[in-house]
Design a protein around this nucleic acid. Structure first.
Lengths: 189, 189, 189, 189
DNA sequence: CTCTAATCGAGACGGTACGTCGCGTCTTACG
DNA sequence: CGTAAGACGCGACGTACCGTCTCGATTAGAG
């Protein structure tokens, strides 16, 4: 009943409340980091009772993880087909364009001290889709390499959204590709 | 009087107390993240009065920033000469070896939710040494490029110290170099 | 919600907590003056949380005022009918006997540095019952005369309960009457 | 060396410091009660170091007692001759006139929560002058009667200086005399 | 006039209490 | 009869003040 990520066959009211919490959190994250936000504020913004919040999430971090999971799922679903393609440049571009299209949420997620939660959500969803990540890089440990790469991606995105906000998705995808993505797809030499 | 980084001509008691706080924090960070640690614990570990802590730092985060600054200074001082050299591989290696030699502190600093503080300390110290960072990468914004690169470095280090602990400094430096360091020194083409 | 004296239609928990605070204070006042008592002690004695105390009273003095008010109300209710009677001696006796019957509380209230709070409570309750105090003494300022007389009463009681504890109510009422009460009811001459 | 009342053959600096503390306290008491005043404030007002205060008095209450003692001594010295005279009215008048002449100090002493300290000082000085107080009132306990009478006096003075400030010394002395002083000198009946 | 010891200013320090804030639980009143 | 409102316990926070302490600088008063 608690801290759920996927709730399919739920009571309509439950779905409604969870959605309200998610959106309230999203709104509040635009102005404050997660630790500055209080459960009281979330409840007020979601227009639910204070106690009610705890019927759905044990902590506000759990609610954040839920939101992160939700967005990560969408991102991965959107970009996964391209991940295995050889054209790293195109993949990077699609990736950045998706982030740009949901810029406010991702800014909140990546610049409010929640980056590690997002990173974990992304790793989880990627592994769900592909247990055998194309680990052709002999110099990268196969078991944790994915975590590293996603960490770097998250880092670049966080940098973009907090310190280089005027860059275009095209520019950022070029930086990403030049910096390390290309190295991951090129033939080993 | 507060949240200082460099205090030269201070009262002996003051220097003693600040040092005690720094070391206590370092010790506690080995087992808990910064937000799990309480000021009470820091004071107890440093064997100073609770109130005394606040005479030196406004928050525990400020104390952490002090510690980060202290370590960042040492790291940069040790590695700076190599940074401009063309041999990126050698520079990466020295860098990782220094981290390895002070592994416990850096593990604490990078895996306890304090990475952003460390990143800022590193950026600050790097800029202090070289206001004109060799910004030959036309595809990288000169004003914030350094922040990005240091962010990536910190990310790799955090990954190393928390998820790939058995890797040798040599191996990690190779990963770093292959992934993105080499791209930063190679001739543009 | 705070520093209340009369709370009728309150949550049962609230009434219970306030009553516990009042009784705890009463108990502690038997051994310590109000400024020696800490909120922590009150909370411990009342078996409530430290923070909870502040949900009901802003300071411990306010809690004391509540207790004083409570006792003053009882005293005045008990003695008021006699106050206007011509028989000052009988009125004084009933007064002292009531105090004697609740000796421990009144000792605490009058000898623990709280006399001024008690005095104010008594003045307030007396005025509530009779806005037009029989001010036939031409040599006594009508507007503040009551305050003075009650001050003297409180002074005598404080003296009795702290320095002449072995005196009987009868004896004290005689002293009170001979000293000044009789002067207030006798015909002016 | 501490909490002294009479310091004759002292270092000039010591005398100077004590005098400064007394005057500072006197000044501060005009606006705040004794518990609102901090040692820091006293030291600042007296223009001495914080630590220095403690070289002369263990607590601020001790300093207050010193001041009270000083004033009580003057008052008693001035009024004692009249106390045994049969003319209670004249004695009361002289008493009130002296208070009026040093009105600011006495207001501070009697309306700032320090009344009990003053009362004790007065009792002490009175007893010093006359161990055998004329205790002809059979209805008043000889051993504690003086304390009571002085308590009443102090109460009237406090009332005068805080709630009936516009009364003249003549008026107050009349009230005092009518209320209870006359009862103490009249022939027993 | 000098020397020596007491006094002083400055302020770091440990400690206690305060009052606030937020969390997460649990009771209660109300619809 | 369920549910929101909110009282509650808990614990950390940061502040204020107390009284102790060390360290120099100053100054009185004796020789």
């Amino acid at each position: 009943m608690k801290d759920v990520t996927t709730e399919e066959g739920q009571d309509r009211r439950v779905r409604r409340t969870r959605r309200a919490i998610r959106e309230a959190l999203q709104t509040l994250l635009q102005d404050n980091s997660i630790e500055q936000i209080t459960v009281k504020e979330i409840a007020a913004e979601a227009d639910i009772g204070y106690t009610t919040f705890f019927r759905h999430f044990t902590t506000k971090e759990a609610a954040l993880a839920d939101l992160a999971d939700y967005e990560a799922e969408e991102l991965i679903a959107h970009c996964f087909p391209l991940l295995r393609s050889a054209d790293s440049r195109a993949a990077s571009l699609v990736f950045c364009q998706h982030i740009d299209s949901r810029r406010r949420v991702w800014t909140a997620l990546l610049t409010g001290g929640a980056a590690s939660i997002v990173r974990e959500a992304l790793v989880r969803h990627t592994l769900e889709r592909s247990n055998d990540w194309p680990q052709s890089r002999s110099w990268l440990p196969p078991e944790s390499g994915l975590t590293l790469v996603i960490g770097l991606l998250v880092e670049v995105l966080g940098w973009w959204l907090s310190r280089a906000e005027n860059l275009t998705p095209e520019h950022v995808s070029e930086i990403m590709d030049r910096l390390f993505i290309s190295k991951l797809v090129e033939k080993e030499g």
